[in-house]
Design a protein around this nucleic acid. Sequence first.
DNA 1: TCGTTCGGGTGACAACGTCATCTGAAACTC
DNA 2: GAGTTTCAGATGACGTTGTCACCCGAACGA
Lengths: 201, 201
Amino acid sequence: MVGMISRVESAAATRRALVDAAAELLDEGGPSAVTLREVGARAGVSRGAPYKHFADKESLLSAVAIEAWERNIAGQRALRADAALAPVDRLRAALTALIAVGRQQPHLFQQMFTIPSGDPAAVARVAQRSQDEFLAMVAAVVGERDARRYGALLLAGAHGVTAMEVSGHLSTDKWRVTAEELVTHLVELVATTAPAAEPAT
Amino acid sequence: MVGMISRVESAAATRRALVDAAAELLDEGGPSAVTLREVGARAGVSRGAPYKHFADKESLLSAVAIEAWERNIAGQRALRADAALAPVDRLRAALTALIAVGRQQPHLFQQMFTIPSGDPAAVARVAQRSQDEFLAMVAAVVGERDARRYGALLLAGAHGVTAMEVSGHLSTDKWRVTAEELVTHLVELVATTAPAAEPAT
DNA sequence: TCGTTCGGGTGACAACGTCATCTGAAACTC
DNA sequence: GAGTTTCAGATGACGTTGTCACCCGAACGA
């Protein structure tokens, strides 16, 4: 029958609700606000239920970070598919998107770059895929040969400025520059310095 | 009598021991390993003693971060006083020092850039002083006029690459570049692109 | 139809952050 | 120097949290 839910479907739905609830609590009050009891409550299950889907609290938070990385990947794919954008604009848009996450969901941003203690490979793997996507965008601007070198520069710069703003260390009074301006500046710097520019994919 | 300890001296010594113990535990096992009970034990006092010196656990961790920033400031001052170094070398050394902290004390590095929830201004203030020091070093290379713009770029880049390495997102297989190489590259990029270079202080 | 599997609920426990309260000695007042 | 105040530290206690062992019931496979 249509709409009938099997056991695996129900379990998957619960897992979804758990991750969503955890992400919500993380946004609202940081990692310490993510209690398994409250997560269970918001997901409509009991306090022990999360343990049927995640090894421990940190695995749950890792799942939240992993989904954020996957959204990041999807966003970059969409940018690459947008034919209306010049390669250098795609680059800038991708980095600006990272800044936007930091601005709108600072705790999530920090979680994405937290030292993993459980399974280090889990978050790292999906982050690597995001970087692959980004590398392709860089290659379209500076060429395949120097993509890695400049890609690391761009990504580090964007992440660095966002992290500084998130943690309150980027006083615009002092630096007289916004995160977006800095990224734009950095992209221009790379685009003009880089040896060769190739046509977009 | 020499060696006699007054009450305030004893209290200051306890505070020192508490911060040291917290820093030690942070290095060993991350923020979750810093329990007030263990901190008290290592400092030779009881579990409730820290509350005579810090409002709560987070204030204690903030104190650890603040001391790390102060060491950073002292290091930068030493670099600026070293007449044997060219201005651009001082810059690179300062950024490399930041990377070294991330490598050797990853949890401390994260703590230095954590979103503060208690007194946001406390950590931010000392971080600002570190940036003032850094700004002066940048000005010696690219001139006063563009120091802010390029300073933010350099600092963000160094912090970004360190954070990526700390969180395991900087696969050297993929990027074929170490954090130091990237910083060196960035410094050269700025030094050659910047409009004017002025003599060192 | 009969086990099996497995998501979910519940009781329980240790550890933790935090506070109210007590204590004793140093510091201050006269 | 006696009395008073101040304050670092110890301790008992409480609520909360992460975690696990155990139980239950419904969906699934044979």
